[in-house]
Design a binder for these strands. Structure first.
Lengths: 234, 234, 234, 234
DNA sequence: AATGAATGAGACTTCATTCAT
DNA sequence: CATGAATGAAGTCTCATTCAT
C-alpha cells in the first residue's frame, strides 16, 4: 500500500520477478522446516506478505511450487560445483572438495530440503514424477565422475559398483546432519568434512594398495639390487 | 472374507488379537509407503477391511498407532540382535553381522519405516515426544558397543567421535536402500552387505597400523639403498 | 468374576434390580455433572463397572435412560413432599417448608439435574416429549396448591397470575444454586432458605392487607384532624 | 440467492461484514435453540447459506464463534443500559427499569442465550474460561449498583447478602421466560415486568417499613393533638 | 444376562484451489 | 497483477447403538 504509491520506476516485470523470488525463497524455507505435507500455502503466503491467491498466479499448484523450489536449489548448487570443481586437481582433493561442499550446503540450507527430497522422492504415486530422480542424478554427477576417474586411474577401488560407492559417500553426510538437527547442535563443518572425507577415502582406496605398496617396495629393492650389481660388475 | 463365512472355533480373544496384529502390520505398510502425514486412517482401515472406527477401538489416535508400529518394529529387531550378537566373536565379525542384519531388516520391511523415523524424528513440535529418539538409541546401542570395543582394543580408529562413526556406518545403508526403492530394483543383500561392510571396515581401521609400518619400512630401505648407492658411486 | 462364583442365593431378579439401580444412580450423577449431550454411555458404563452393551439391555436408548433418571428423581422428591407436607399447618409454614425442601434437594443432588431439565426441556424437537413438562408440573403441584390456598384465604396476593408467583419462587432458588456451583462454594441451606423464604413471602403477601388498612386509617385520622383544625381555626 | 444474480454495487468490504453479521446472528439463534453441545456448524452454515468452511474463515472454532456471539449480545445490552439508566431517578424507578429491560431482552432474543450462559458457564473444564463469568458480572453490575444504593439509603433491606438479592431478582425472570418458551406462548412484557417488579420490590423493601408507617401515624396524631391542645389553650 | 467387537453417522476442522472484482 | 472470499474434499476422531457369542 504505502510502498506501491511511492516506489517509482520499478519496471512491472521486475516487481514480478522479485515477488517470484521471494515466494521461492520463502517456500524453500517452509518446505525445509516442516516437509511437503505439513507445509501450507497459507503459511508461505503469510511469510511472503501476499495473499494465497497471489502465489497461485505464479505457480500452478503446491506441487509445482515445490518442484520449482527443488529445481532452483539444485541449480544453484550444481552451478557452484561446476564452476569450482575444474579448478581442483587430484582425485582425492576433488573428493574432499565435494564432501565439504555437500556438507556445507546441507548445513546452510538446513537438512530440510534434503529430507524433503528423500521423503517425497520415494512415494509410489510419484507425486513429483521423475523430477527429483533426475535432479539427484545431475547433482551427484560430479561426484560420480570423480569416483569413476579414481577407479580408472587406480586411486579408487574397482571392486564395487559405483552406486554403492555413492551411497557410501552421501549416506554418512545425511546421517551426520540429521543427527545434528535432532540434537539441535551446530556442526563444525570443516572438522566434520575433514574427518568424514578421511574415513571415507580410506575406505575407498583399493584394498590392494598395501599389496601394491609391498610390490613397489620389492620393485624398489630389486631395482636397487640390480643397479648395485651393475655397478659392482663394472 | 475367507474367514468370515465359516469362521468357527476362533476363540473370542484370538479374533481380537489377530485384528490388532493385522492393523499394526497394515499400518506399518502404509506409514512406510507414504509417511506419517500422508497416511490416512481411511486407507489403513480399507486395507485391513474394517471400518475406521474399529481402528480407534484399538488405538487411541493416529499418533498412537504410529508409535506402536514403531515400537513393535524396533522391539522385534532389537530382540533378534540381542539374541544373536553374543554368539559372534571378534569386532569385525560382529560389525559385519550388524551391517548385514540392518540391511536385511530394512530391505524386508522397506525403508519406509526408516524414512518415517528420520523424517518425523526431527519435527520441532515433538509429535512423538522422545519415543523415537529413545528407540533409535536402543537400536543402535549394539553397534555403538561394538565400535567402542573396537576402539578400545585398537581394531577401530580412535581419531573420530563415535557419533561420526555411527553416521558413517548407518548412513550408507539407508542410502543404498533408498536408491533401491527409488529404482524399484531388488538388492542383493548378501553381496551388498559384504561390500559395504568391507568398505566401511577398511575406513574404520586405524589408518596407521600396517600401512604406516610398511611405509616406514620402505622408507628405511629406500634410504639405506640411497645411502649405499651414494657411497658406491663415489 | 470372583464375586459371581461365591455370591450365593442372590435371586436372579435381585441382581438385575441392583444393577438397574446402580445404572440409574450412576447415570444421574453423570448427567448431572456434564449435561445430556456431553454425557457418554461409555462413561456411565465405566463407572458402573459394566460394559456399554449391558446398559442397553436395561434401557432402550440414551434418551430412555435419561428420562428414567429424571422420573426416578422426581418420584423420590414428590413422594417425600407428599408425605411431609400434610403434617404442616399454615400457608406460610407450608411455603417455607417447600422452599427449604427444594433448596435442599437441589443442593444435595447438585444442580445438575435441574440444569438438565431446564436445558433439555426446552429443545424444539422435544427430545423428551412432554415427559419433563409433566414431571415439572407434578413436582410444583404442591407449591401451587399452597399458593392457591393462600390466595383463597387472603394470605397471598391475588393480583398476579399463579404462574408468575411460581416463577418468583422457583427462579431465585435455581439462581442461588447456580451461583453456588459456579463459585464452587457450599451453600448454607438453612440460612439461605430462611432468607429467601422471608424475602419471597414478604413479596407474596397482599400489598394492601395491613399496610393498606393502616394507610386508610391514617388517611381517615389525618382528614378528621384537618377538618377539626379547620373548624377550630375559624 | 436474491442477491447473487444482480448483486451490484455492494462494496467489497460490506459483503464480508454482512456475512459476519449473518453468521453471528444465525449462530446466536442456533446456540439459543439447542445449546452449545448440540449446535452444529453444519446447521449454522446451512441456515446462513454458506459452506461450513466459510464460517471457519470468520471464526477460528466453534468455541470462538460461541464466545463472540455471547460477547456481542452482552455488549449490545450493556451499552443500552449504560445509556438509559443514568436518565432515571430513584432507586425504585431504576429497579423497575432494569427488570423491564432484562425481561424485554430475554424475550426478544429468546431465553436460549441465557440458558447457554447458565449451562455452559458451569462446566468444570472451563471451556469458555472466565469469559462468561466476566460478561455476567458486567451485565449485572448496574443492578447490583442500584441495589447497593438502595441498601445505603434505606430503600432496600440490608439484612441479606447482595448476592441473594441478585438471585431473587434475576431468578424469577429467567423462570418466567422458560415457562413461556416451554408453553410457546407470548409474554406480555409490560404487564409481567410491572407485576414482577412490584412483587420483588415489595420483597426487597426493609421489612420494618410498616412499623415505620405506624410510627409516622402516631407522630401525626400526637402532633395533631398537640396543635389541638395549643389551639384550645389559647 | 452380559459383553467384546464392530460400525454408521456425523462432528469439527484444514487446506489447496477457484473466481469475481 | 493482486486478492478477499468462498468452498469441496478430505482428515481425524467420537459415540450411540447392534449383534453374535
Amino acid at each position: 500500500m504505502t510502498t506501491s504509491s511511492v516506489s517509482r520506476r520499478v519496471p512491472v516485470q521486475a516487481r514480478s520477478e522479485q515477488r517470484l523470488k521471494a515466494i521461492l525463497e520463502t517456500a524453500r524455507l517452509v518446505f525445509s522446516e516442516v516437509g511437503y505435507a505439513c507445509a501450507t500455502m497459507t503459511e508461505i503466503a503469510r511469510r511472503v506478505g501476499v495473499s494465497e491467491a497471489t502465489i497461485f498466479t505464479y505457480f500452478a499448484s503446491k506441487r509445482d511450487l515445490c518442484v520449482r523450489v527443488l529445481v532452483t536449489w539444485y541449480d544453484e548448487i550444481i552451478a557452484q560445483v561446476e564452476n569450482e570443481l575444474p579448478l581442483i586437481a587430484g582425485t582425492r582433493s576433488k573428493f574432499t572438495y565435494l564432501v565439504r561442499t555437500h556438507l556445507y550446503r546441507l548445513t546452510v540450507d538446513g537438512t530440510g530440503l534434503c529430507a524433503l527430497i528423500l521423503s517425497e522422492g520415494r512415494e509410489k504415486d510419484d507425486k513429483f514424477g521423475d523430477v527429483i530422480v533426475e535432479l539427484q542424478r545431475r547433482y551427484t554427477a560430479p561426484m560420480m565422475s570423480v569416483l569413476a576417474e579414481g577407479v580408472a586411474n587406480g586411486d579408487v577401488r574397482a571392486d564395487m559398483p559405483l552406486g554403492l560407492l555413492r551411497s557410501a559417500v552421501y549416506g554418512p553426510m545425511e546421517h551426520v546432519l540429521w543427527d545434528a538437527v535432532r540434537k539441535e547442535k551446530a556442526v563444525d563443518i570443516e572438522a566434520t568434512a575433514a574427518s568424514l572425507a578421511g574415513l571415507l577415502w580410506q575406505g575407498l582406496v583399493p584394498p590392494d594398495t598395501r599389496r601394491a605398496a609391498l610390490q613397489q617396495l620389492r620393485g624398489d629393492i630389486v631395482g636397487a639390487v640390480k643397479r648395485f650389481e651393475a655397478a659392482v660388475s663394472k
